[in-house]
Computed example of a mutant assay.
Amino acid sequence: MKIALVGIGKIAVDQHVPAIAGSTDWDLAATVSRHGKVDGIEAFTDLGAMLDARSDIRVVSLCLPPVPRFDYAMQALKAGRHVMLEKPPGATIAECHALEAAARRAGLSIYATWHSRHADMVAAAKEWLAGTALRALTVTWKEDVRRWHPGQAWIWEPGGLGVFDPGINALSIVTEILPDDIHVSEAELDIPENCQTPIGARIAFHHPGGARIGAVFDWRQDGDQTWEIEAQTDVGTLRLCEGGAVMEVDGIRTGDAAPLDGEYPRLYARMAQLVRKGEIDMDLRPMTLATDALALGRRIPTDTFHD
């Protein structure tokens, strides 16, 4: 199937383009970006122009920041194209529901992707936890924003999510591996004096079984980056490290892979499956937890941030 990639930034170049190139399901037929291009691929600077010129392209994959994503996605749906959304799927829950409703009315597929759910050890962790009684779960997600999001000012503006942009990856794993749904009970948010979104967060969650669940997100990490989830249960302790690429049970490693290895190819395989079956995948639980933390969180002013 022919696909167009919209928004040719770092994540598109590093992950989306190689995943499409390595897939037997997809043919990257066009790009849309004001600045970026992919060598050898027809490039447009306007989505409407691409949709008008390339009626043969059935699917549009959006790698834009979350705030403009709704308008682009709705434009593609109205043009009869299936839509794939980079995480988070939008700036608000309501607009994501509107996109899903539009896709259903048009008989089109739409996919809210969560790449961290496709890390190598996430499925194994979900299976292991299914037969246990959870006692506690701790998420530690700390990285250096300057390393991973250099010069991306939109993350500090309303709708940009701040530290929840990477933190939502952790929430996507947690909502996938836990048998029971959780919700935010309280949060603290570190907001730089010159920003609209948090650079750090501490969150407590309610678990229906009474397990203690908490998360710490921080974008000020120097040195080693930390992406870990530890679950204490009645039969032992499970740890997911490196964003879900490594799994340990009671300190014994049961499998591992390189971080991000295979995640984006699996997203595109899932999108191909949805299009062929005429289905929709719009799980918004990770975004619900993130936006609820932003709604409930107590704001704590902190030092100004300069990239």
Score class of each variant (00 low, 15 high):
residue 212 R to S: 02
residue 246 V to E: 05
residue 305 F to N: 02
residue 261 D to N: 14
residue 123 A to G: 10
residue 221 Q to Y: 07
residue 195 C to Y: 13
residue 292 D to Q: 13
residue 4 A to S: 15
residue 210 G to R: 02
residue 268 Y to R: 13
residue 277 K to V: 02
residue 1 M to G: 13
residue 139 V to L: 08
residue 147 R to A: 14
residue 81 R to G: 06
residue 283 D to A: 01
residue 177 I to T: 12
residue 170 A to H: 03
residue 255 G to M: 03
residue 31 T to N: 12
residue 234 D to P: 04
residue 268 Y to T: 11
residue 75 Q to K: 13
residue 66 P to R: 05
residue 266 R to I: 01
residue 288 T to R: 15
residue 25 D to N: 14
residue 218 D to C: 12
residue 61 S to R: 11
residue 231 A to I: 00
residue 47 L to F: 08
residue 157 E to T: 10
residue 256 D to Y: 02
residue 279 E to S: 15
residue 74 M to D: 00
residue 193 E to C: 13
residue 63 C to S: 14
residue 193 E to D: 12
residue 195 C to I: 04
residue 230 E to M: 01
residue 305 F to C: 04
residue 245 A to G: 07
residue 29 A to N: 12
residue 222 D to V: 00
residue 49 A to K: 12
residue 32 V to W: 14
residue 110 I to D: 08
residue 129 L to P: 00
residue 306 H to F: 04
residue 246 V to F: 00
residue 232 Q to T: 07
residue 138 T to G: 02
residue 292 D to T: 15
residue 223 G to C: 09
residue 51 L to I: 10
residue 186 E to L: 02
residue 237 T to K: 05
residue 286 P to Q: 03
residue 48 G to W: 07
residue 185 S to D: 09
residue 255 G to A: 11
residue 24 T to M: 03
residue 161 L to R: 05
residue 119 A to W: 01
residue 258 A to H: 06
residue 47 L to V: 09
residue 136 A to P: 03
residue 206 H to K: 14
residue 32 V to N: 11
residue 126 K to L: 00
residue 259 P to D: 10
residue 72 Y to P: 03
residue 272 A to F: 09
residue 178 L to T: 00
residue 200 G to L: 06
residue 40 G to W: 08
residue 14 D to G: 08
residue 54 R to I: 07
residue 186 E to T: 14
residue 156 W to I: 01
residue 268 Y to P: 15
residue 8 I to W: 09
residue 113 T to L: 06
residue 244 G to F: 10
residue 35 H to W: 02
residue 107 G to F: 10
residue 227 W to H: 13
residue 259 P to M: 10
residue 225 Q to D: 14
residue 269 A to M: 05
residue 141 W to Q: 07
residue 194 N to L: 10
residue 278 G to E: 14
residue 48 G to I: 06
residue 56 D to C: 09
residue 223 G to A: 06
residue 130 A to H: 04
residue 54 R to N: 10
residue 254 T to Y: 00
residue 152 Q to N: 09
residue 194 N to D: 14
residue 139 V to G: 05
residue 307 D to C: 04
residue 67 V to M: 00
residue 16 H to L: 02
residue 53 A to E: 10
residue 25 D to E: 15
residue 154 W to E: 13
residue 307 D to P: 15
residue 65 P to K: 02
residue 155 I to A: 05
